[in-house]
Amino acid sequence: MNPPKISAAQLAILLFLARLMHTMIFRVTDFDSGTPIMLGLAASTLIEALLMIPAAAYASKSIRGEAALPKPVRLLYSLYFTVIAGGTAALFAEFLHREFSGTVPPTAAIILIALAAGYCAYAGIEGIARAGAVVFILFAALFLSMVAVSEGKFNWLNLRPMTRDGLPHFSKYLFESLSSSWQIPMLVLLGSKLRRNPAGAAYGFLALKFLAIETLLLLITLVLWRYVGVLGYPIYALGAFAKSDFIQRFDPINMLVWAINCTLVSALYICISSEPVKSRSKGAVIFSALAAAFALYEYKRGLRYDETWFLVFKLLGVLILGTVVPLCAMAINKFKSGKGALTA
C-alpha cells in the first residue's frame, strides 16, 4: 500500500479553508470601521509568518522521516483539534439557528455534522485534500457570482484612515486573528502527509488567506458598511445584498457552501486528531463522537466566538503546539543525533 501523500498546494488550500471557516463564524455586533480589522489582519499575518518558521522546519523533517512526536504530546494535539472541531460545529450550529431557524435544530445539526465529518475523516486525508480543492473552487464561484449580482454600490467614504480611535478594534482583532491561527500546529501534524515543500504550503496559505480575507473585508466595508453588525456574520452578509432574477436570494446558497466547508474542515480536524489511533475507523468514530459531545456541551452552554477562555485556549495552542513543541522536538532530535555521532 502506498503511503498517503498530499501536495503543498492541497495543504495550502486545506489550511485556507480552515481559516475561512473560522472567518465565517466570526460574529460581529458592532462593525465600527473596516480599516482597523484589515490592518489587524495584516499585522497578524506578519506575526504568523514568523511563527510558521519552526512549524515549516519541523514539517520538512517530518517529510524526511526525521521527526516524530512522542505519543503523549501527540495526544495533546488530538485534544486541541477535537476542541477546535467541536467549537467550529457549535458555532456553525449557532449560525444556522440564528439565520435559518426553521431548517434544522442546532442539536441535530451538530450530530449530523459530526456524522458526516466522521465519515469523511475515515475516508482519509487524501480524499479530504482533493475535495478541498473542489470546495475552494465552489467558494470562488460563489464569491464571484455574489459580487456579480450584488445590488450594493461601492462607497469609498466608508474606507476611513486608521486613527487612535480604531486602536482598541485593531488590538482586539489582532488578538482574535492570532488566536485563530491554529493552522500553524496543523502544519506541524500534516507535514508527514506532505510530499514536499512545506514552506511553500505554509506561505502559500498565508498569502492566500491575506489576499482573500482582505478582499472580503474591503468589499464588506465598501458595500455593506455597518449594516454588517445587523446581519452579524460579515462574509455571510455579502450574500445578503445580492439578488438575481434566476436566484432570488443568495443567503441559502451561501449557507450551503458554508455547510460543505464546515463538514470538510471538521473532517480535517477529526482526521488529524484520530491519527494516534491505529484503526482509522475507530479513530474517526471516537474523535467525531468527542467533538460532537464537546460541541453539544458548548452549544448548550452558549459558546460565543469571542469568549475569553476560548480565545486564550486557542492562542496557547498556537504558541505551544505550533511553535514551542516543534522547536523543542527539533532541539532534542539534534541533541540526540549529536550524541549518536559522538558515540559512533
Binding site: 431557524s101 426553521g102 434544522v104 435544530p105 442539536t107 441535530a108 450530530i111 449530523l112 456524522l115 468514530v285
Partner: peptide, 21 residues
C-alpha cells in the same frame, strides 16, 4: 456499524422535530 450509523441518523432525524418548516 450499520446499526450504529442507522441509529445516529434516526437520532438526528428525531431531534429535527420531524420537520421544521
Amino acid at each position: 456499524k450499520a446499526y450504529f450509523l442507522a441509529a445516529f441518523f434516526l437520532l438526528a432525524f428525531l431531534l429535527s422535530g420531524c420537520k421544521g418548516s
